[in-house]
Simulated assay, not measured.
Amino acid sequence: MTASSDAPVTAPEQEDTEFVQFWNEVLAPKFIRFRHILVDGLTHHSEAVFPKLPVKPGDRVLDVGCGFGDTAIKLARIVGPEGDVVGIDCCDAFLTAAEADLAQTDLKNVKFMRGDAEISLPEGEFDFVFARFGTMFFANPVAGLRNMRRALRPGGTMVHIVWRNPEDNPWLSMAKNIVLEFLPPPGDDARTCGPGPFSMADEPTVRKMMEVAGYTDIDFQRVDAPVLVGQDVRDAIEFQLAIGPAGEVFREAGEVAEAKRSQIEEALADAIRQQTLEEDGIVMGSSSWVISGRNPED
């Protein structure tokens, strides 16, 4: 497989769902703005998870919801020149950024393609399927998880990483709680990115999803690690009001939110100043599940 720095490879054409449209139109520009947090901020998670992934040289790997391509590139270095990696995402801007980063490497075993895992994926082609903080946004999680299993060869393994409960993820929950002191929660008609970051926090529920999707040997491993939330207080405030649960509340409140912006920012600043300051910026606690399952041999 030969990598290319041209436009991303396109999967068989699919009609975009409302969620995919929302990611492309609303969220992608925000994610690009805060890429330094969303990629670099997860360094500790990567260091805890990647060395333990069941990937070996020569494997063929699918990275679902590959985003900016950093995980696909990490996986490509693990599988080596005898293996290959396909990164798939529904956001055009993410794929463009991924291609640009790939072009700066010497890797020839990676390609990126546009697609929606909830609708379809290549079938029976991969030894390992991976997703970092993507499956929790599936509107139809069983369908997405089933498609990921079907992408595996018999006996292949899937691993996906999701956030655990809000209480163990103050980097997401703290800001939302503060914003809700000033603004109403989003209504039932709010445009969202899907079920949200905590939709797969409950182990029994997700285990049942995995079973219904056809996986065996299902396992949950907890990983606690600090995450970067901003280079400084201002960066952290802007990040929280743009992305995640707090950002959704702020966005949906519209003009009311803007009218109260100064009060909200002041309250967030007070809380953020109490967090740990490291060399790279402000860090807070986080907790995730690393969930694995196997595609049966028969």
Rank of each mutant, 00 (worst) to 15 (best):
V229D: 04
R150D: 09
V162D: 14
P296V: 11
I218K: 02
K56N: 11
V283I: 15
G67P: 02
S199T: 05
A246G: 12
E18Q: 09
E99V: 06
Q274Y: 00
L172M: 15
E13H: 10
M136N: 02
S173V: 12
F50I: 09
A267M: 04
R222D: 11
I37R: 05
V64H: 09
P245K: 09
R114Y: 09
A201E: 13
Q21M: 07
G69I: 13
G124C: 00
S262T: 12
R33W: 04
D298H: 07
F130Y: 15
L121G: 03
D188L: 12
E255H: 15
L145H: 11
P141F: 03
V212Y: 14
S46Q: 05
A267C: 08
V110K: 04
T276G: 02
E123N: 02
E203T: 08
A236S: 14
G83D: 05
P296H: 14
G293V: 03
S120K: 12
I237K: 08
E252D: 15
T135Y: 10
S262C: 02
L62T: 05
K56G: 07
V9M: 10
F34Q: 09
F128P: 08
S287M: 14
D70A: 06
W289L: 07
L121R: 01
D127W: 11
V233I: 15
I178G: 08
V64R: 01
I272A: 11
G41T: 09
E252L: 08
V283S: 09
S46I: 00
E278W: 03
Q240G: 10
R146F: 06
G285S: 15
P29E: 15
P170E: 06
V283Y: 12
G244Y: 01
L102M: 02
L172Q: 13
Q275M: 11
G230D: 11
T157S: 10
M284W: 01
P186V: 07
P51Y: 01
D6P: 06
L145V: 10
D232M: 13
E266P: 12
E252K: 12
V61F: 15
G155A: 07
E266L: 14
G254R: 15
Q275C: 14
G194A: 03
Q221W: 00
L241D: 12
D84P: 00
A48T: 04
P51F: 01
S5M: 06
P296A: 12
K176Y: 04
P195I: 05
A7P: 14
A269M: 13
D40S: 06
P184C: 05
S199K: 05
Q231I: 14
C90S: 13
R60P: 00
N140V: 12
A201P: 01
E278S: 05
P141S: 09
I78H: 06
D6T: 15
M210K: 10
F128T: 06
C66F: 06
E25R: 14
H45Y: 12
T157L: 02
T96L: 08
V206I: 12
A93G: 07
